[in-house]
Simulated assay, not measured.
Amino acid sequence: MPDSTARTGLVELAAAEKDGCEHALERLLAHVHVHVVRACRRWLAGIGDGAAEEVAQEALVRIAAGLQTCRAGTDEVLFAWCHAVARHAAMDRLREHLREWEVRALGDELAEVECGADADERSAAVGALLAVLHEALGTEPEAVHALLWHRVVRRDSWEEVGHALGLTAAGAKRRFQRTVARVRRKVERLLAQGDDPGRTDARRWLARQRHGLMAGKA
């Protein structure tokens, strides 16, 4: 957030808005807008074009809606409050995408090699696989989702993953490897259940990938 020289008068604008001044809220939001956008771009880097700007607009709406209950007595405290509102808006957006990212990224881990199948067959098989993977991940504890978030989504180093989870780098790597192996087995069990054609296609597709992987290692 900016230094105090850029914040002069914001508490006064907030007070004026509460007293019914027509333009006070507009002026206050204009002051904080650029800083909210900048913070959202940093937090949401890689989420997709336009996401930071969308979340920044949502944050400004929340700031406007909550200003009447804000009890900040200084510009610094008011900016900290705005920063917290923006952070919560960004976290909400990240939560919306987290499960989808985990499923698709871990799907890459499960496949291990590029698919050589026909494009239509690949699309159907991968679609079924991702649906099963979504089901498998739905029963995993929060600690697993945190691990996948840092390593698969954020692409953190093992040192960074370990620091976030209270592990050594080697410990984080071992936990990740065990997690992938366990989820892979869970997916295989789910794929083997029932006679759904999509799951049958996914089983065949995975079998071909493993065969191709082993042939490449021979």
Results as ranks from 00 to 15, higher is better:
C21K: 07
C21H: 15
H23L: 13
A24N: 04
E26S: 12
E26P: 09
R27E: 08
R27K: 07
L29D: 05
L29N: 06
A30H: 14
H31D: 07
V32F: 01
H33P: 05
V34R: 02
V34G: 03
H35N: 09
V36R: 00
V37H: 00
R38Y: 01
A39N: 07
A39S: 03
A39Y: 03
A39P: 06
C40H: 10
R41E: 07
R42C: 06
W43I: 05
L44Y: 06
A45E: 12
G46D: 13
I47W: 13
I47Y: 13
I47G: 08
D49I: 08
G50T: 01
G50E: 02
A51H: 15
A51E: 06
A51N: 01
A52E: 03
E53P: 09
E54R: 13
E54F: 02
V55N: 04
A56G: 04
A56W: 03
Q57M: 03
E58G: 05
A59C: 11
L60H: 00
L60A: 02
V61Y: 00
V61S: 00
R62I: 09
R62W: 05
I63N: 02
I63G: 10
I63T: 06
A64S: 01
G66N: 12
T69C: 11
C70A: 14
C70G: 11
C70F: 05
R71S: 14
R71W: 12
R71C: 14
A72W: 04
G73R: 15
G73N: 04
T74P: 03
D75Y: 00
E76N: 03
E76R: 03
F79N: 10
A80Y: 03
C82V: 06
C82I: 08
C82D: 14
H83S: 09
H83R: 04
V85Y: 04
V85Q: 06
A86L: 00
A86Q: 01
R87P: 02
R87F: 00
R87D: 06
H88T: 02
A90K: 00
M91K: 11
M91R: 08
M91C: 13
D92K: 13
R93Q: 07
R93A: 10
L94E: 08
L94V: 07
L94M: 03
R95Q: 11
E96S: 10
E96M: 05
H97M: 12
L98D: 10
L98S: 02
L98F: 12
R99H: 11
R99E: 12
R99C: 14
W101Q: 04
W101N: 15
V103S: 14
R104C: 01
A105M: 13
D108G: 14
L110G: 04
L110I: 03
A111N: 10
E112T: 13
V113F: 02
V113I: 07
V113D: 00
E114V: 05
E114F: 10
E114K: 09
E114L: 11
C115G: 15
C115D: 13
C115P: 11
A119D: 07
